[in-house]
Design a binder for these strands. Structure first.
Lengths: 300, 300
DNA sequence: TCTTCTTATGCTCGCACTGAGTATAACCCC
DNA sequence: GGGGTTATACTCAGTGCGAGCATAAGAAGA
């Protein structure tokens, strides 16, 4: 029987003032996701993850979901060794990380994903030409067209619609065209700068953000990231931060109220303008609707 | 560094005359999914999977997607050993399995999932009372209500809507209430009978069916299971088989044509009634729509 | 040939939801 | 009170969908 070294990684997401953020710890080669080993007496992978995250960061995780298992040769510098890593997504409200850990803004790692203030310039200035050059590599024939079409789909060139969920596909395409390097190394003029992260940990963050953006639209996961009561604008800002797009305020309000996702508490909160009513998540919605979520443009 | 035995499993899905089916091979303890070991020189997990499936079943896989990694202690009879299994979903049109393999009807394994001819009686006759008894175990208080609510959500009791995607949640709840046993063993009057499968392979099938039903609604995966040209009724029957629900014929037609998912070829096929036009998948839809899929009731 | 059965295809209501925008309310500060 | 700010209510047009009616085009049998 063959065996491999098995590791676990946690992409722990919370939301700061303006953007989603992931918990990272410092490592020799840039920042790293909290990682651990599976111990012989961990009954389940989930429990192992919770255990070592508690040990390393003093954080008690709430929502936890398995993301993906990475096992390609060459994902770690040592070519001989295969490291199998099971990555998890975890959500938490906690905002005070322990000593050697810190929150890292997701959009520092993946700047092309934030469209709240419009389409990032880097897409048309850097990515578009790079994808075109990459398509030209294989000639103007079939293969080139397929490459161009793939670029159009994931980056929404030529009037194709932007799909916020395709975070991982964008990451992988950027990697293929040579605009980003996986392991920390010298960044050049032809790569998109970012905070260096260990191994393929940035890819794990991309996987997590994509999954989260998808789940947003059909499961009430946002409420894992909010306090028990909140104003509708707080909820909206949170959804916008995760989805990476701006939303129409009145329609957002109508959506969550008519979907009966939230219920008013009667209390209000001072805001600087007219006081806002405080709402709470309405748990009963789980039995009423098949896919209770918040609705962003790409959920149709 | 800790290490574990690592296996790969493939849930290979095709669609027969009336139902989705998975490829199984015979094993000492009932049927088993094709499984393999990761070899040291397999560059990626995908490639390893394709390699051993080719060796074992002489099948060349098309669409392949990682499903989930199973690693709980106790999923295999030997309590000491931890077996980590990375399960994959694969789609294929091939209908002739090799010697020791055969196609097994998904709804023989998961009979409560097929609602095409109405809600299966087993849900209200067997599952409902069992869930109620299970809820009563913890008293009529908070815990009991939570259990009952969970039953309502996943099995659509008390007017809750049926959500075809929650295959795995249903499987897990049935397991918790004691209506099915994971490893092959004596079935009793209080368990739902089914074909015995090795280890937790039936759980893997449930995972695969759930994933497939979800993907159906936002990616054109059905066409992986169809010949190049097909009639709209063939397409509809296929979607119905996977989704486990019956669809309105005229509306289905309108949906796929207006979404521009398919295009007519001009040819027709004899059917027993008026000849049907043959259609093909319209690849350009990938750049036009963010989530090209077929639309089933739970996709809203 | 005429009838009946079967499948395919076209079309039309009515409802629900959505995008976009206008209008009004309720607080702050000065 | 005026102006800024945020909250909340409401309207209107377009779109998508569930449900059903109607017609077309073949096969099979009387």
């Amino acid at each position: 029987m063959s065996s491999a070294v098995v590791g676990l990684n946690a992409v722990i997401v919370s939301v700061g003032d303006t953007a989603p953020q992931v918990l990272v710890v410092s490592s020799g080669e840039g920042w790293a996701l909290p990682s651990g080993q599976l111990a012989a007496d961990d009954r389940t992978l989930d429990l192992a993850l919770r255990r070592y995250v508690r040990d390393q960061t003093a954080l008690e995780l709430g929502y936890v979901e398995q993301l993906y298992t990475f096992g390609d040769l060459g994902r770690v510098p040592d070519e001989r060794q295969r490291l199998l890593s099971v990555a998890y997504l975890a959500l938490t409200r906690a905002d005070e990380p322990s000593s050697n850990a810190r929150w890292l803004d997701c959009y520092e790692l993946l700047p092309w994903e934030d469209h709240r203030a419009g389409r990032p310039a880097v897409l048309d200035e850097l990515v578009d030409p790079a994808v075109n050059a990459w398509a030209d590599e294989v000639g103007a024939g079939e293969g080139g067209e397929a490459r161009r079409q793939r670029g159009d789909i994931v980056f929404a060139f030529h009037d194709a619609p932007w799909d916020g969920v395709r975070v991982l596909e964008r990451y992988e395409l950027l990697y293929e065209v040579g605009l980003l390097t996986e392991a920390p190394g010298p960044s050049s003029a032809t790569t998109i700068d970012s905070v260096p992260m260990r191994f393929d940990h940035r890819r794990m963050v991309a996987t997590a953000l994509g999954r989260l953006r998808g789940k947003l639209t059909y499961r009430p996961v946002v409420f894992e990231l909010l306090p028990d009561t909140f104003t509708l604008l707080q909820l909206q800002r949170l959804v916008e931060a995760l989805a990476g797009v701006a939303l129409h305020k009145q329609n957002f309000r109508r959506l969550v109220e008519r979907a009966r996702l939230v219920e008013g508490t009667g209390d209000t909160l001072q805001t600087g303008g007219r006081p806002a009513e405080l709402f709470r998540f309405r748990r009963e919605v789980l039995t009423e609707r098949p896919r209770p979520g918040v609705g962003v443009p790409w959920s149709l």
